[in-house]
């Protein structure tokens, strides 16, 4: 049993928090994992990605080979499309439809979303709207994680426990909003 995931987004969008939750859930579930992330210059609003590998056996490479990823999970639609060459032909793309427009040549959003849907399986959700509904627009990353949760080989309880650890220190409102964001993301994905 293995699962390779490309986490994608723009520097500052919180993909390292998603990775943190998955890492800890994997540890709790007794799985091996390696997760390569991007620090430094690219974190200043550049394209960032994290290679997340889960397995019940040995994981060699810290990077996912092209064609080996089972899932692309992206907080931003253009960034989801950027890593198509990593995805298996039958892989799944789970992405937010909310564009992050910090470049002058950002393509037409409809074209971006059409490109996303060229993947054989895709889940596209309005993470901004759902996060606001949950109580904070900052929880878009957790909306995405919730949307992906039914497709992960991790136990949902382990994910929720880590979200609890991650946000408990920031007060009950923040924690509740993130738990709700997870729930809304999950429902939206299952309904889509």
């Amino acid at each position: 049993m293995k699962q390779d995931i490309i986490l994608a987004g723009v520097g500052g969008q919180g993909i390292l928090s998603i990775a943190y939750v998955i890492d800890n859930a994997a540890l709790a579930d007794g799985l091996a994992f390696k997760q390569a992330e991007v620090h430094g210059m690219a974190q200043r609003g550049g394209a960032v990605q994290s290679h997340m590998r889960l397995s019940d056996g040995t994981i060699w490479s810290d990077l996912i080979p092209k064609g080996e990823a089972d899932m692309i999970m992206s907080v931003e639609p253009l960034e989801a499309v950027r890593y198509f060459d990593f995805l298996r032909p039958d892989g799944i793309v789970i992405t937010s439809s909310t564009p992050f427009r910090n470049i002058p040549d950002y393509p037409d959003l409809d074209k971006v979303l059409d490109a996303v849907r060229k993947a054989p399986r895709s889940v596209v959700l309005d993470s901004e709207k759902l996060a606001k509904e949950a109580g904070t627009v900052k929880a878009q990353n957790i909306v995405l994680l919730g949307a992906a949760s039914s497709f992960l080989i991790l136990k949902e309880a382990s994910l929720l426990r880590t979200i609890d650890t991650l946000f408990r220190g920031r007060g009950p409102t923040v924690l509740e909003a993130n738990l709700k964001a997870f729930e809304l993301g999950k429902k939206a994905a299952l309904g889509s």
């Binding site: 550049g46 064609g67 198509f84 060459d85």
Partner: peptide
């Protein structure tokens, strides 16, 4: 041989270099 992967979407991928906050 390289593993088979999803074909490129055809969307021109605008680069996203880092920038000042």
């Amino acid at each position: 041989k390289p593993l088979p992967s999803l074909p490129a979407s055809g969307l021109p991928l605008a680069g996203r270099p880092p920038q000042l906050c």
